[in-house]
Design a protein around this nucleic acid. Structure first.
Lengths: 145, 145
DNA sequence: GTACTACCTGAACCTGACTTCAGGTCAAGC
DNA sequence: GCTTGACCTGAAGTCAGGTTCAGGTAGTAC
């Protein structure tokens, strides 16, 4: 069993954030002793899931819904499975989007390396839009589809 | 030259958002005719960069700084290059983090598929923490390091 | 000449996710 | 017995990133 301070250290989360999560209902059935929160294995796992769902783009409201489901046992396995499948698809989509972002950033890195080497953008302008170095052209075309 | 409505359609951004960006100084030197904004190639490219920098996790404030740099010519190539390199590293880190998130989500998908098939979590509990199917064990270990 | 549409403004409002604040409890060490 | 440190509360504050509102203009269609 851990205190809020210990959990705060374990997850590198401010105490205020953990209390906020509690207030939002993310630890249903959290135990207390003389008013003081006592975090057990269930809450530690809950926090891991919270961080995961948050990272997947889910809001607090929907995380609370999930936590409520976990208190309802086998009856909500289906909903919980669906939730994770949906989040998985969302993250996969997000990673594809970030891949495009990365292409743009790589192009811009090349752009400014070249501009910096030349002292101006003239040579680049002359190469646009379809006479860039092959590797860069590929990035450029993916970005400006 | 495009009107704000056309740009809104092109980028699938609400008009209010584009006006907000303008107010925040993201289109330095934006042309106007009788008060009406006229978006040219420069602004279209600016919006592409804005979306990219936003997706990389940069705030409006820093995007404004970048846009200011673009008006200062060759003197700021170095800063601009550095900015894109920093954003590139940030996105790469973000993708690694998302990869971990994905591992967790895959584990949870398996978990609830199994629980759903069994009607309870008993079999899974018996496999924890180190007797999971190899493929799942790998995910589990990466998550619970 | 008037209705319609697409544009304009500044100011106020909204949402989500926290954080801060003022004031209080409680056990341990000195 | 009193100070210290770690915990507690509800309410208010903050911040980013927009969105909405009330009221106004400008060009075209009939």
């Amino acid at each position: 069993m851990y205190t809020i301070g210990q959990v705060s250290e374990m997850f590198r989360l401010p105490i205020s954030t953990i209390r906020y999560y509690d207030r939002q209902g993310l630890f249903p059935g959290l135990e207390r002793k003389a008013g003081i929160r006592r975090f057990g294995a269930r809450e530690i796992e809950a926090l891991r899931v919270i961080e995961c769902l948050k990272a997947s783009g889910l809001g607090i409201r929907d995380i609370r819904q999930f936590m409520a489901w976990t208190t309802e046992g086998a009856a909500t396995y289906e909903q919980r499975k669906q939730l994770f499948e949906t989040r998985k698809r969302a993250v996969e989509a997000e990673m594809e989007a970030l891949q495009m972002t990365l292409d743009m950033l790589r192009y811009k890195c090349w752009y400014y390396e070249t501009a910096l080497a030349d002292g101006n953008e003239n040579r680049i302008s002359a190469m646009l839009p379809d006479r860039l170095p092959p590797e860069i052209q590929e990035l450029y075309d993916r970005i400006h589809e």
